[in-house]
Write a protein that binds this DNA or RNA. Structure first.
Lengths: 140, 140
DNA sequence: TTGTATATTAGTAATGATTACTAATATATT
DNA sequence: AATATATTAGTAATCATTACTAATATACAA
């Protein structure tokens, strides 16, 4: 619930800027670790609150529960995601929207389809060649 | 981690049967509530352990983090899901697989796409007419 | 500039789904 | 029946996320 009137905050701006600058859909923990370089006393709660606020304002998107925890995407334009089965990396896919699959879904369905969310699985370019097993998102 | 050799258990059979009998992708809590009618002393841990075991054996599928918690699907054949934005209900969609969208995803992608998961959103037939706000999965 | 109002924060405690642990029980085999 | 071990019930621990609170930052006006 955004406050009645909103005030500027350096922490919120930093969260916003960090999110916009990244294409890897960081977790709250990753945002926290990175912002601590600029704000050594920032609290995890502040990160969570501002991430939720940005989502409410339509300036970020929440990808819930991927690999056990929520991730946040500064790109609010509808797009598809890829998740590497090997290293857990999450990345955007450069592909057009597929609005017609909504029609396919609505064909034998009583309700109304307004949209969809799709995640593609496989191996990222790195894991395709190297057969490593470590999981990423180290926040570097 | 399944044990070296597996033994029969009435509780596990009950979990399996319950899951197979339902098309609404119940949560662990829902399975627990229902099985308590037959096993008044069954523990939630037993339900979780057996659900995880069934997933490992390939007899069930886990839908992670939908609406805040994991759901379990006794239908292991690949299929698509619908999630009602109003009541939170989760249901199967009667539609063909869309293998060609993997090709669309792989077009400008360096890695390998092996599959996808898609969730469709909108209003179920019930919520399309009645404008209620309660969330379901009451376990009845 | 001061002063007042209130949104925001840091720090910490609480929540809640899920997982781990352990002594007792169920199952399988001899 | 006796032995071995997989499984359970019950409970405690985990851990991402949320809620709470006194102190601080921001906005704006006198």
């Amino acid at each position: 619930m955004p406050a009645a009137t909103m005030k500027y905050s350096r922490q919120r701006e930093a969260v916003r800027e960090f999110l916009m600058s990244r294409k890897d859909h960081p977790t709250a923990e990753t945002v926290y670790k990175n912002l601590r370089e600029k704000f050594p006393h920032i609290s995890l709660g502040t990160v969570y609150r501002n991430l939720a606020l940005l989502v409410e304002l339509g300036e970020a998107v929440k990808l819930p529960g991927i690999g056990g925890f929520d991730r946040f995407d500064g790109n609010t334009a509808p797009h598809y995601h890829f998740i590497c089965e090997n290293c857990g990396a999450v990345m955007d896919l450069d592909m057009p929207q597929l609005p017609y699959i909504n029609d396919a879904a609505e064909k034998n369905f009583d309700g109304t389809i307004t949209g969809h969310l799709a995640f593609f699985y496989g191996k990222c370019s790195k894991c395709k060649t190297t057969a490593e097993h470590a999981h990423s998102d180290t926040g570097t």
